[in-house]
Write a protein that binds this DNA or RNA. Structure first.
Length: 105
DNA sequence: TGGTTGACTAAGT
DNA sequence: CACTTAGCCAACC
């Protein structure tokens, strides 16, 4: 069995709190786990397919709503499809932050 | 130990 | 408005 780093586990826990219909940006998660936006993105990029079911990772986008994972290739298309499937408003590869941005508080 | 890289962001040119 | 720097942090070589 592989052990997730403590930071990775924190990120997972935080992402799990994102409700249906909401999205958050990397900086928000970073703030919750005590790290930075770039490190959060680095962790998510290291996720394997087996972890896709564990957390709503596709509800994490960049601050302006853009689906950053699109630069990774096919993975980005999957994220976009999942968001559309859940009824999110997406324009030009970006989520409508005015309607979907979620705040942890 | 130190340089490079990266699903970020803010600020500068 | 498009592109570049700089700051930030974790992993890899």
């Amino acid at each position: 069995m592989s052990q997730k780093s403590e930071l990775k586990q924190k990120v997972f826990d935080t992402v799990n709190k994102i409700p249906l219909g909401g999205v958050v940006y990397f900086g928000q998660i970073a703030s919750q786990v005590g790290s930075d936006a770039r490190t959060v993105g680095w962790i998510l990029s290291g996720m394997v397919v087996a972890e896709y079911d564990l957390i709503p990772w596709y509800r994490v986008v960049s601050k302006n709503g853009y689906i950053s994972s699109l630069k990774l290739g096919h993975k980005g298309l999957l994220q976009k499809q999942l968001l559309l499937k859940e009824g999110y408003i997406i324009i030009e590869d970006s989520v409508d932050m005015k309607k979907h941005l979620f705040n942890f508080d």
